[in-house]
Amino acid sequence: MTMYSLSAVNLAKRFGTRKVFNDISFELETGRSLAVVGPNGSGKTTLLLTLLGGYLPSKGEIVFSENAQVLSPDTIRDKTALVAPYLNLYDSLTAEENLVFFTAVSGGRVTGKELNSLFERVGLAGRADDPVGSYSSGMKQRLKYAAAILKSPEFLFLDEPTANLDDDGKKIVFDIIEEFKRKSIVVIATNEKEERDFAEQICRVDQ
């Protein structure tokens, strides 16, 4: 079985003189999940985006590996997915066109049957041909989960995973987290107790 791991060692991030987080260390492997917790503005999102390569860390090291072999940035990109309220999809494209595009640009291919079952799973059946611009914020959040699932990520990053979702949407998301925490590495930035409880490890960002 292929084992993936993600480790952060003494990670720190500053914007100019402003310290965002300092001395963050953790180690995760396939089947383990981490909750990043801390008050508003403490740097949870910055930490997630730093792990994803969106920001360079001011100090420390991030290593993604597969069977103890360090992964290249290109491989990391193909094996990671993010779901977050600030992650926007293309409003002028339909939901299906968005999913086909993000799959194609990640080097994958998807069949109509797979798409139909995915839309069914995230509760968007019958809305696949609607432009994303006509979706509510909750529907957009569901579609982001569909895009993430399509990538079959080995590293799944979730920032406020149930933001904008109703009770049905939350249940769908909790099922997805349950599924991925068994077969992938899941990192969840949240302040909600029921989301935090999915993770075996906690990383507190409040410095």
Binding site: S92, A104, S106
Partner: peptide, 23 residues
Amino acid sequence: MPNKSAGLTSRALAVFSKDLRVE
């Protein structure tokens, strides 16, 4: 789930056709 085999050309064409569709 998706079969990951596409190379640079098909990824570039995906970006091109997405931009064309949006435009």
